[in-house]
Amino acid sequence: MHRYAALLRGIAPSGPNMTNDKLRGVFEDLGFEHVGSVLASGNIVFTSTATDVPALERRIQRALSSELGIPGGTIIREHGELRTLLDSDPFPGLTHGRGTYLTATFLKDGATAPEQLPDQPDSRTRVVGYDPAARVFLAVIDNSDPGRTPDFMSWLDRTYGKDITTRTWLTVQRIVKKLES
């Protein structure tokens, strides 16, 4: 059995079809085991014997769309990928806060990795890098002015469209903890 985290795009906890119990129900109906949710923002952990991640992503997304009307994307990472990412400590000495908003933007499995990162996205963003094994961009954002979207986030959207989803570093840590419980 493999432990996976599904990072669902476009989940609004206030949406009547986007509650954790309904999301978990879709995963359970698909035959996955040890299904659990992390926070109320579209993070589902589960076990499966399946190893074809792109096929899992498509299967889950079809079910979410048909059963709950959720059109967003599904991005899956295996427990080992996330554990290795955490162990690499990409944000040494930093604490998540308004001025140091630590983010991880995951690419859909099979998405093309960047040939290069954008040059100096803006003064409010420090791109830590791209981890090819976990297929994730890591950035520190000064989020003290929430009315402005940093250029780096806009670049990600323009380049990868709906084939990405962003989580805070705290959420990634919580997902890994849930996978290990």
Rank of each mutant, 00 (worst) to 15 (best):
residue 83 R to Q: 14
residue 172 V to A: 03
residue 23 L to I: 03
residue 106 F to T: 05
residue 68 L to K: 01
residue 130 Y to R: 05
residue 40 A to N: 15
residue 94 L to S: 02
residue 103 T to Q: 12
residue 57 E to Y: 08
residue 151 D to Q: 05
residue 137 F to M: 04
residue 75 I to P: 08
residue 1 M to Q: 01
residue 58 R to M: 13
residue 164 I to P: 05
residue 146 P to W: 11
residue 165 T to Y: 11
residue 145 D to E: 15
residue 157 D to F: 07
residue 6 A to H: 02
residue 94 L to C: 01
residue 74 T to P: 10
residue 132 P to A: 13
residue 91 F to N: 03
residue 140 V to P: 12
residue 7 L to S: 02
residue 167 R to Q: 04
residue 3 R to N: 05
residue 144 S to C: 09
residue 8 L to Y: 12
residue 142 D to F: 11
residue 68 L to V: 00
residue 7 L to I: 01
residue 108 K to C: 02
residue 151 D to N: 01
residue 78 E to D: 14
residue 151 D to S: 00
residue 84 T to E: 07
residue 86 L to Q: 13
residue 11 I to M: 11
residue 15 G to H: 15
residue 95 T to N: 03
residue 82 L to I: 09
residue 81 E to A: 14
residue 72 G to P: 12
residue 40 A to Y: 11
residue 145 D to W: 04
residue 86 L to I: 13
residue 99 G to V: 05
residue 7 L to M: 14
residue 171 T to P: 09
residue 113 A to R: 14
residue 66 S to Q: 15
residue 87 D to Y: 04
residue 166 T to I: 00
residue 124 R to E: 07
residue 74 T to C: 15
residue 126 R to H: 14
residue 124 R to G: 06
residue 106 F to E: 12
residue 166 T to P: 08
residue 112 T to P: 05
residue 175 I to A: 12
residue 120 Q to W: 04
residue 63 A to E: 15
residue 110 G to Y: 08
residue 62 R to H: 10
residue 154 S to P: 03
residue 168 T to A: 00
residue 138 L to G: 07
residue 166 T to Y: 05
residue 102 L to M: 06
residue 141 I to G: 02
residue 100 T to C: 03
residue 153 M to H: 06
residue 72 G to K: 10
residue 29 D to Y: 03
residue 127 V to F: 10
residue 135 R to D: 14
residue 153 M to F: 00
residue 53 V to L: 03
residue 173 Q to D: 07
residue 77 R to F: 08
residue 136 V to I: 15
residue 97 G to A: 10
residue 9 R to P: 07
residue 57 E to R: 09
residue 14 S to P: 02
residue 75 I to W: 11
residue 137 F to N: 02
residue 134 A to P: 14
residue 38 V to Q: 09
residue 37 S to C: 07
residue 36 G to C: 06
residue 62 R to W: 04
residue 10 G to N: 08
residue 12 A to P: 08
residue 101 Y to R: 03
residue 136 V to N: 15
residue 18 M to F: 01
residue 145 D to I: 09
residue 133 A to K: 13
residue 111 A to I: 02
residue 26 V to I: 08
residue 39 L to P: 05
residue 14 S to F: 10
residue 52 D to T: 01
residue 147 G to W: 09
residue 129 G to M: 09
residue 48 S to K: 03
residue 48 S to M: 04
residue 138 L to F: 14
residue 159 T to D: 07
residue 26 V to F: 06
residue 127 V to S: 03
residue 178 K to Q: 15
residue 90 P to R: 01
